[in-house]
Design a binder for these strands. Structure first.
Lengths: 134, 134
DNA sequence: GTTACAGTTGACGTATACGTCAACTAAGGA
DNA sequence: TCCTTAGTTGACGTATACGTCAACTGTAAC
């Protein structure tokens, strides 16, 4: 279950280019193993990539994505000081996410109203057409 | 209630620079009136700006923000063809928003788990400290 | 062995979203 | 009238996130 992926396989699966994957590696988002010079992507890399793209869709920069991923995928638990910093970062990112949540809800709300007006307008036009064509 | 805002006032209110406001104008997000060469921002400009920044926070490009804003702030109702295109765009943007919503929920979920583990770890450390210091 | 092909490392190019600076202007106060 | 201040238009610079191409390498199949 742990056979490695080639860069092309991973790129296809996530609809990216090899260039993008190498770029993400450069930014510390993933760190695939190597056989010679060739990159071998593990399931862990795949998971980190999935999280990174999730962050991207939410408008986080790659740097922020790396931060978030490293929260989820920590090496060692670390000491109390580290853990407190981790909790702080979590709270910070959560605040941002909740803001985005409010933004989405507001947008969906207005969008619904606009759609309703739009449909009402279309209905009026349709009624006119039927009236004239009779 | 409709006194115009200077570029500095608007910039301060939204924590932007005048340069950013002029850039947004260049991209068609806002179109302030002029007294001579000086820009005068109306409440409508203010509203469009608010919507634009909301879009930005959600990771939309300025171009996409313009599209979204123009959905909300249409000039004339337009014919049936226009209205149908409008509905299509609404559905498209709604799909993107719902995807972001799922992404946020997933992220918040994992974040909660990580935080719980983190707090548990801190508690363990704290207990050890108390035990040793007695 | 060699041919084909996937992969690698630079290096430069590009789109987006502004920052920064220079040079000019228009308006209001001493 | 002169000076200060806010605003204007270029123009170039910069960070992010890759695209693109060139030149090389390693590996697998024949």
């Amino acid at each position: 279950m742990d056979r490695p992926y080639s860069i092309q396989q991973l790129a296809q699966e996530f609809d990216l280019t090899p260039r993008a994957l190498r770029f993400y590696e450069d930014k510390g988002l993933i760190a695939p193993a190597r056989r010679g010079t060739t990159r071998l992507y593990s399931d862990r890399d795949r998971t980190r990539l999935r999280l990174a793209l999730r962050g991207k869709r939410l408008g986080f920069s790659l740097e922020e994505c790396r931060e978030i991923i490293d929260l989820y995928d920590p090496g060692q638990p670390g000491g109390a000081r580290q853990l407190l910093r981790l909790c702080d970062k979590i709270r910070e990112h959560r605040a941002q996410l909740l803001q985005k949540l409010r933004d989405i809800e507001a947008t969906l709300g207005t969008m619904g109203e606009v759609e309703a007006k739009c449909l009402a307008e279309l209905l009026k036009i349709d009624l006119n057409v039927r009236r004239v064509s009779q």
